[in-house]
Design a protein around this nucleic acid. Sequence first.
RNA 1: GUGGCUGUAGCUCAGUUGGUUAGAGCGCCUGAUUGUGGUUCAGGAGGCCGUGGGUUCAAAUCCCAUCAGCCACCCCA
Length: 421
Amino acid sequence: MSKLLPVRGTHDIIGEDFRLQNYVIKSALTVAETFGYEPIETPIFESTDVYQRTLGETSDIVNKEMYTFKDKGGDSLTLRPEGTAGIARAVISGGLQDNTPLKWYYSGPMFRHERPQKGRLRQFHQFGAELIGVADPAADVEVISMATEFLRNLGLLSEVKLQLNTLGDFQSRKTYRESLINYFSDFKDNLSEESQVRLTRNPLRILDSKDSNDKEIVSGAPSFHNFLTPEADSFFKNMCSGLDNLGIEYLSNPYLVRGLDYYCHTTFEFISDKLGAQGTLLAGGRYDGLIPMMGGQSIPGVGWAAGIERICMLTQMPTEEPRAICVIGLGEPGEKEAAKIALRLRRSKFKVDLIYKGGLKRGLRRANKIGAVAAILLGENELTNNNVTVRNLDNGSQTEVSLSELDSHLAVYESAKLVAE
RNA sequence: GUGGCUGUAGCUCAGUUGGUUAGAGCGCCUGAUUGUGGUUCAGGAGGCCGUGGGUUCAAAUCCCAUCAGCCACCCCA
């Protein structure tokens, strides 16, 4: 029982788990590159107000989930809880507002002080894409198309459903909000405790309540559809027909509400039912108000973020790791020679595990344990003859070959080579 | 922040209505093999029973607190 544990909600990612995570991230950025997007990395912490002002005073992220601290200069800083706000800040900081459209992708850790559960950590990883400066629904379509290709390449498209909604423009949302408050106020005493709080804070939230009684009340609530301005309505219709044009399947869910204040018009989530309560793998939407809210010019944007850990839970690695060749030297002269041979094989892209000390038995045991294909043995006998012994660990056969013939002899172990990138 | 379940060896877990030296499997180490792994056999190490308090002649077992893990609510990727 070790007393030294990782901080709550964080964990170490080791070996195969880490490879899988790298694989998922790599396939995401490959897709993003094929869409012509550029990589960007913003700092892991920002001034607190970057998040405070933009994510919404009523959002849980701002209210209770931010890792905020004062640095030695007394400035209030916050570990980033999401990626979009930092990127909007970068647009303004870099004076990039005249360079639109900006097409960016990013990946890295995010931090939220939440109670951990399945699919939810305090430090987790996201990959995201943003398309900034295009007001046309074609931008929404492109970004959703990229997300679809990403999930398709991982073999997850059949595992998820794309849900879609519109939050309309500012005007639509304002009138709808008022009518919701009106409607729900009549049922106030029947609503769940949580929804009563939502009624004053964020009435749209009541729409996706999980409470069964709430759901019944919600079913009679006014539909957002009737409150959309003609502009917002046609924006949504255009976007849907853009998705149809690309053969992207989706489900319209009028109760899909995003948590962050900066969203407008399109919102979407790719949801799996195999991950317990936290089934959203990837989610995003349009945030036309964000950059002006931060004091920049009025530039629209649309994007999404994917939860790497959640996606990893559903993803299989398509290829197996190459099996190593173990190089075992006996005695000091043998070890020196072994180090040289290991380097030589590594330069030929073999995956090589060099064994230190401990004799032949221990060396072979280690070779077996790591699942090596072969072992190369170097003792006194081999050294005096300028040879090495190559032992096949699957069938136990071994032959002594001269150093000059080693490469051709190892040709049968091609599978131990790492594939060039 | 709220609730439910769970904390016993490195790992997965047994442990009877409270009763003497707390067990198994896997893993680890040593030997059978002084230069041959994976199989087999023989032996060995490893536990403040999450932590602190309480009840009792006696606590891994009952009670309280606390910490941690998991799952759910909330919320979100």
